[in-house]
């Protein structure tokens, strides 16, 4: 039972971090379908940091990993920003390209590094057994993970920034009606860039949390298994509002956690449901939830439409 709560919380942290990333980006008017790819690149940066700092003090590891993951994710979203904001490219296409590119690039990079270190090692796996311990504080049987705290802080910050600061309100204006925002002197391009870069930071951190959630090594060929898209589902279910996103993340996190720990419950194991069913569950649930919640969607009105100063 404690294990289930623990996994629920950690997966919910991943989902809420990434969903908040999507939330910032979409409020500024850019749909970031490349969040999945951002997660992979963030995870890549974080994993290399963990590998390199295996013997450093815990606090150094925690801070360094978070900062490097965030930076990696942010740098990667520059690709999205340039294409979609400055060159007005199709946001769906570029997001998809980023997802495919991230897995290919991460695999190539990890394999090249592995082969460089040891010619016989052609795998795309990074191990970080020791460094992972820095993130965990044991409270009895419950393993508290610093990332859970990071997620809560991110939620609070997102709420304050979006609703209580000038920046947040301006950001949202750019996603609702960029022409009007521009007419009162807001720089729409700048706001959209901020939204996209923030989504990179949050997505990057989400990526490293995801790959350290249950395991202590990661094979980069697998990417992050659609988690970026689950996060988008969480965001839609949460109606683009930070508090609702947090709650939605808990629900989805629970179903994801179930697939990790179902064999530990006697009554679930006794049902003899194949593991695939539990693996499928988060995706199935999100599809059903989306079917019922998308009708009255409160999506930012101008999202997905490139802003062109000339067309009013």
């Amino acid at each position: 039972m404690i294990l289930l709560i623990q996994y629920t919380l950690i997966f919910a942290s991943v989902l809420s971090l990434v969903a908040l990333g999507g939330c910032f980006s979409e409020h500024s008017g850019v749909i970031n379908l490349g969040l999945e790819g951002v997660m992979v690149i963030g995870a890549l940066g974080g994993a290399f940091t963990m590998k390199g700092l295996a013997n450093a003090p815990a606090i150094v590891i925690v801070l360094a990993v978070i900062i490097i993951s965030a930076l990696s994710g942010m740098v990667y979203t520059v690709l999205l920003g340039v294409a979609c904001i400055n060159f007005k490219a199709d946001q769906t296409l570029v997001g998809t390209a980023l997802n495919i590119l991230s897995t290919a690039a991460a695999t190539v990079i990890v394999k090249a590094v592995n082969m460089h270190e040891n010619p016989d090692n052609v795998s795309s796996t990074i191990q970080y057994v020791n460094a992972k311990k820095a993130f965990i504080v044991k409270l009895g049987k419950f393993e508290f993970n610093w990332f859970m705290l990071v997620a809560v802080i991110a939620l609070v910050c997102a709420y304050v920034v979006l609703y209580k600061t000038r920046f947040g309100l301006r950001l949202m204006a750019c996603g609702e009606n960029p022409q009007a925002a521009d007419s009162v002197g807001i720089n729409v391009y700048k706001m959209r860039w901020s939204g996209v870069l923030l989504s990179g930071i949050l997505g990057g951190i989400g990526g490293i949390v995801y790959i350290t959630a249950g395991v202590s090594e990661w094979k980069f060929e697998t990417g992050v298994a659609g988690f970026g898209f689950l996060a988008l589902a969480v965001m839609i279910f949460g109606q683009w509002k930070p508090v609702n996103i947090g709650l939605a993340a808990l629900l989805f996190g629970f179903f994801r956690a179930l697939s990790n720990v179902y064999s530990g419950f006697d009554f679930l194991a006794a049902l003899k449901i194949p593991g695939s069913v539990y693996n499928m569950m988060p995706y199935l649930i999100s599809l059903i939830v989306l079917a019922f919640t998308s009708k009255n969607s409160r999506a930012p009105k101008a999202e997905g439409i490139p802003y062109d100063k000339g067309s009013r």
Binding site: A89, A105, K111
Partner: peptide, 25 residues
């Protein structure tokens, strides 16, 4: 494949998709 990862061609395809985003422009 003892020197280079074969996924390099996936990387090339992915970059091509990304570049296609600029085609309209």
């Amino acid at each position: 494949m003892s020197v280079y990862p074969s996924q390099i061609s996936d990387l090339i395809s992915a970059i091509i998709i990304y570049l296609c985003g600029f085609v309209l422009f």
